[in-house]
Amino acid sequence: MSKILYIEDEEDNRIITSHRLIMAGHQVLLAEDTVEGIAKARADAPDLILMDLKIKDDETAGLEATRQLKADPKLRRIPVIAVTAFTEAEKRTESLRAGCDDHVVRPIDFPQLLKRIETLVTASRSALNQTSPFS
């Protein structure tokens, strides 16, 4: 059971994905844009953030928000998974470059997403208990 912050501007996606996450046993926080998302990341300390990359017709909003999150020493430990409907390989590179920990393409392969969430949350929790091997 993890606390997941889902930043997504489209209502339909928010409803569907959050319900599926809840069905899988997670707790879900929602944000409609990146400003709200970053505020909630600060206030509610989620275990993981699902970040839609294109928010309100701004294709780089999600990447920008990820950079902000990763620049903040208090927030950078929260894993971020980028979600996008763009299929280009460069998009994956871009999001990893911006600091995202993973990248999934719509339509979301849900069992796969759940696995990745689990892996990342586990890794970040264990990283909290020890010093990072690469720091």
């Binding site: 489209e10 339909d12 996606n13 569907i16 994905t17 319900h19 599926r20 069905m23 294109k54 996008t84 409907a85 763009f86 299929t87 280009e88 719509r106 339509p107 979301i108 849900f110």
Partner: peptide, 21 residues
């Protein structure tokens, strides 16, 4: 192509995601 695919994939993804569960 990129934009078109994105714009078409987004609603389709929503439909598929909604139907799957």
């Amino acid at each position: 192509l990129s934009v078109m695919s994105h714009e078409m994939r987004t609603p389709l993804a929503a439909i598929i995601s909604a139907l799957e569960p």
